[in-house]
């Protein structure tokens, strides 16, 4: 119990320090208020033109698509992460050695950092974007069930971190991971439904995506927010899909632990 309490205190302290550190670079985050709504505006214009006659595409009409992209914008802002970049930078530069000397696991440390970073992102990026969507585009995103959405979002946040952390551990084996990280990051976003709703993908691909961790990062929280879930013809209730999400988070935790243990054996400081 005491250990748990101490870990929680460390988490809060690291999260707060990260929050303060990033608060010094507010303009860095404020750019999101321009970029996010601009991309959204592009989607509005495109789908307005494509579905001008009131048609549907993959079961989505224009309003449903706008709600989907609005929800994607909010969810991807909240789960945003760059743990992969951080970890590979530490390994590549040799600074990772100092991390090993700390009385805390690096994964816990990095997760705490992400928590602080996204707490700042919540009110500096997500809330203003939510307001812009409501006031400018008349899209008022209210979760169908707030409790389930918060839980799903927290799990999406964790899975995003763990996927990225696994990618970051590639630096134990590769000298330079920029290309691999970009490639995996791109596939992650495609498979998470960031660019296009997964329902528009070919059926066989949807079946494959159901078993991969990526849909649980963005697509599932978005569907939970919107109040229904379906992929590859599999229709699940909200508690069921959030349960699957929790299972995936556990699996990813195990995978990150395995990769960490294998990778740490290869680390020899100053050049990994």
């Amino acid at each position: 119990m005491n250990r748990l309490l101490a870990a929680w205190r460390s988490t809060c302290a690291i999260a707060y320090a990260t929050y303060q550190e990033w608060a010094a670079y507010r303009s860095h985050m404020l750019i999101s208020l321009f970029i996010g709504p601009t991309y959204f505006l592009v989607q509005v214009v495109i789908w307005q033109a494509l579905l001008a006659d009131g048609g549907t595409i993959g079961g989505y009409d224009r309003t449903a698509l706008m709600s989907y992209y609005g929800a994607v914008l909010i969810v991807s802002t909240l789960v945003f992460d760059f743990a992969d970049w951080n970890l590979q930078m530490l390994i590549r530069s040799g600074k990772f050695l100092t991390v090993l000397l700390r009385p805390m696991s690096h994964r816990g440390f990095a997760l705490s950092q992400k928590l602080g970073h996204r707490c700042l992102g919540l009110w500096m990026e997500a809330l203003p974007i939510w307001l812009i969507l409501w006031l400018v585009f008349s899209i008022r995103l209210v979760p169908a069930s707030t409790g389930w959405f918060v839980l799903s979002l927290a799990l999406g946040f964790l899975i995003m971190f763990l996927v990225n952390y696994c990618v970051g551990t590639l630096a134990f084996w590769l000298t330079r991971t920029a290309g691999a990280r970009r490639l995996i990051g791109f596939l992650r976003d495609v498979c998470a439904g960031v660019f296009l709703p997964l329902a528009l993908f070919p059926h066989e691909l949807q079946q494959l995506l159901f078993f991969l961790p990526f849909q649980f990062i963005t697509y599932v929280p978005v569907q939970v927010l919107l109040g229904h879930y379906e992929l590859a013809g599999i229709r699940l209730g909200i508690p069921e899909i959030v349960g699957c999400q929790a299972l995936m988070a556990l699996l990813m935790w195990g995978l990150s632990e395995l990769l960490w243990r294998l990778g740490i054996r290869r680390f020899s400081a100053a050049g990994a």
Partner: peptide, 9 residues
């Protein structure tokens, strides 16, 4: 190798 992967991405 990294250059090749980056080009593909």
């Amino acid at each position: 190798a990294d250059l090749g992967i980056s080009m593909i991405i």
